Amino acid sequence: MKEQSIKLGISIGDLNGIGGEIVMRTLEDALMLDLCTPVIFASAKTVTYILKHFELDLNFQGIKHASQAIDGKINVVNVWNENPSINFGKEDPEAGAYAIKSLKAAVEGLKNGDVDVLVTAPINKASIQAEDFKFPGHTDYLNQELEGNSLMFMVSEHLKVGLLTDHVPVSDISLSITADLIKKKFETIHQSLIQDFGVERPKIAFLGINPHVGDNGVIGKEDDTVLIPTLAELRSKGKITYGPYAADSFFGSGNYKNFDAIIAAYHDQGLIPFKTLAFGKGVNYTAGLNKVRTSPDHGTAFEIAGKGVADTGSFKEAVFMALDIYKKREEYAELTQNVLKKQPRKKQPGGRSRQKER
């Protein structure tokens, strides 16, 4: 019997950005249908417009609901019936509204099991703001809708960077970092490395909060009072964690190669080196959730939208990674079940096994 194809949900992103182009060009590769069954949340009219604009010859199946997706075909769920105007390169709340319609429908499909994984095309954070959507980005919305504790995890072949704080103003960073947050984010990355990436005993490094890890309190006290004691507590419980390291020299020295993952204190501390070393080949993975979601490591790129020059590399990597993590999670779940089955049954007093009387 043929193994059931993984259903790949795709949200279309901002219609005025490069999302539509990178989605369609990725699916041009016929091998994609051997790996998965794509389910795009948009509309047949919108997808037809994008294909005509970029002169792409791609066949798809229009469906009313994701549950109707057909294996071996590119499926497009008609989330809307109207034909929205697309003005490539323009920041427009209307385009943002359609991006959110696509995202909400895709997440609903993910929650219901109509799709197995989700890859999100880029959105514009200003355009998406509305009365019914007040989130700084995908990650916070997914954290609300899906079970678990979300964490922005930037991943490439040789580098994995997680964040203690993500879309937080610089003025609020030090107030946001607490011992509880550090432990929670560490556990999320630790579990993700084991479950999603097959790392048996993860080695995780922390970057300091302040320049030079605070220089013994001369440049801020947060490292000495919060981060260092919390890492010592994690080590006392047998966790393999290192640091904190001064962020300014950590990547340039190549020290990052010695660890399975690095946890940065804040957004730019982690993403600037990640995008310098892996831009276009990296993936933004939302770790810590009960479902798999990935996205490319870039934004809407309005400056090149509609010109037919967008690079599909990161989006393709996001697709491959979503499929790989889905399979890894299945293997992990099976392994865990097998281990539990092999554990000896607890006996009740008197030597009898704890099982139902027949």
Rank of each mutant, 00 (worst) to 15 (best):
S5Q: 06
K7L: 06
L8G: 00
I12P: 03
D14W: 01
L15W: 07
L15M: 15
N16A: 02
G19S: 09
G20P: 01
G20I: 00
I22V: 12
L27F: 15
L31G: 14
M32V: 15
T37N: 02
I40H: 02
A44R: 07
H53Y: 04
L58S: 02
N59P: 04
G62H: 07
G62E: 08
H65C: 08
I70T: 07
I74F: 03
V76L: 11
N81T: 10
S85Q: 11
N87Q: 11
E91A: 12
D92L: 05
E94S: 00
A95M: 09
Y98D: 01
E108V: 04
E108P: 01
N112W: 05
D114H: 11
V115Q: 01
D116E: 05
V117P: 03
V117M: 07
A121W: 12
A126S: 14
S127M: 01
Q129V: 11
Q129D: 11
D132V: 08
F133I: 14
K134P: 05
T139G: 04
T139S: 08
Y141V: 06
E147A: 06
F153D: 09
M154S: 09
V155K: 02
E157K: 06
E157W: 00
V161T: 06
T165S: 09
D172W: 06
D172P: 00
S174W: 07
S176D: 03
A179F: 07
K183F: 09
K183S: 12
K184H: 10
K184M: 12
S192I: 05
L193E: 04
P202L: 05
K203V: 09
G208P: 05
P211H: 11
P211C: 12
N216Q: 13
E222N: 13
T225D: 13
I228R: 14
P229G: 08
A232M: 15
G238A: 10
G238H: 09
T241Q: 03
Y242S: 10
P244K: 09
Y245W: 04
Y245L: 08
S249D: 15
G252S: 04
S253Y: 09
Y256I: 07
N258E: 14
D260C: 15
I262S: 01
I263V: 09
L277E: 11
G280M: 13
G280C: 08
K281F: 10
G282F: 08
V283M: 04
G299L: 10
A301E: 04
G308H: 08
A310K: 01
D311A: 13
F315N: 03
F315L: 13
V319I: 15
M321R: 05
L323K: 02
D324A: 15
K327F: 05
A333D: 13
L335R: 13
Q337W: 01
Q337T: 13
L340W: 14
P344T: 13
R345C: 10
Q348V: 12
